[in-house]
Simulated scan of single mutants.
Amino acid sequence: MIRFSEKEKRFLASIEEARLATASKSMPHVKPVSFVFMDGAFWVATDYTTRTFKNIKKNPKAAITVDVYRPGGHKAVLAQGKVDLVEEGAEFKKIYEVFFEKFEWVRRDPWKEKEAPFLKLIPVTKTSWGTS
């Protein structure tokens, strides 16, 4: 398991948006996402109809970048890893509660198990700058 420093964890907890990169066989796809970093993994909600979901079904590897750009003070964490789909069960309920608490858009448009999955990106590599 990749370890994150306390400073990196605080940085990740302070940011709500990241960019998630997935790929099918031939074409990468990057999009902004809301995320939560919890228990050493990055969690992202998606829908079954998205390009991201379709890519993950074909290729369960992805990368996520969380960053803040300030001239002379850029901070970022980049992680690459394997993605598990979490659609139901205790793990789904636990992360859903965190998303519900953190994000207004979840409270406005709630969903249930098997209506929309979470992507659980488990890092196998990590790079950070300005956060360690």
Rank of each mutant, 00 (worst) to 15 (best):
50 T>I: 07
4 F>P: 13
74 H>K: 01
109 D>P: 03
88 E>V: 08
111 W>L: 04
33 V>S: 06
52 T>V: 13
12 L>Q: 10
66 V>Q: 02
82 K>P: 05
56 I>P: 11
130 G>H: 10
85 L>P: 14
58 K>I: 02
4 F>N: 08
120 K>W: 06
63 A>C: 10
102 K>M: 03
12 L>N: 09
82 K>D: 09
16 E>A: 01
71 P>K: 10
19 R>A: 03
53 F>H: 15
110 P>W: 04
20 L>K: 07
35 F>S: 03
23 A>W: 03
113 E>V: 12
50 T>N: 04
117 P>Y: 02
129 W>S: 03
57 K>D: 00
67 D>Y: 11
130 G>P: 14
11 F>T: 07
112 K>M: 02
82 K>T: 14
25 K>D: 10
10 R>S: 12
131 T>Q: 12
118 F>Y: 14
131 T>N: 13
92 F>A: 04
109 D>I: 08
131 T>D: 12
41 A>E: 12
61 K>A: 00
30 V>P: 04
87 E>W: 02
24 S>F: 01
21 A>H: 05
109 D>F: 14
70 R>W: 00
116 A>R: 15
18 A>R: 11
2 I>D: 02
61 K>L: 02
69 Y>L: 07
99 F>E: 00
119 L>A: 08
30 V>W: 00
11 F>D: 06
115 E>D: 09
36 V>A: 03
65 T>P: 02
18 A>W: 10
27 M>P: 00
74 H>Y: 04
77 V>S: 04
4 F>E: 06
7 K>A: 13
112 K>C: 00
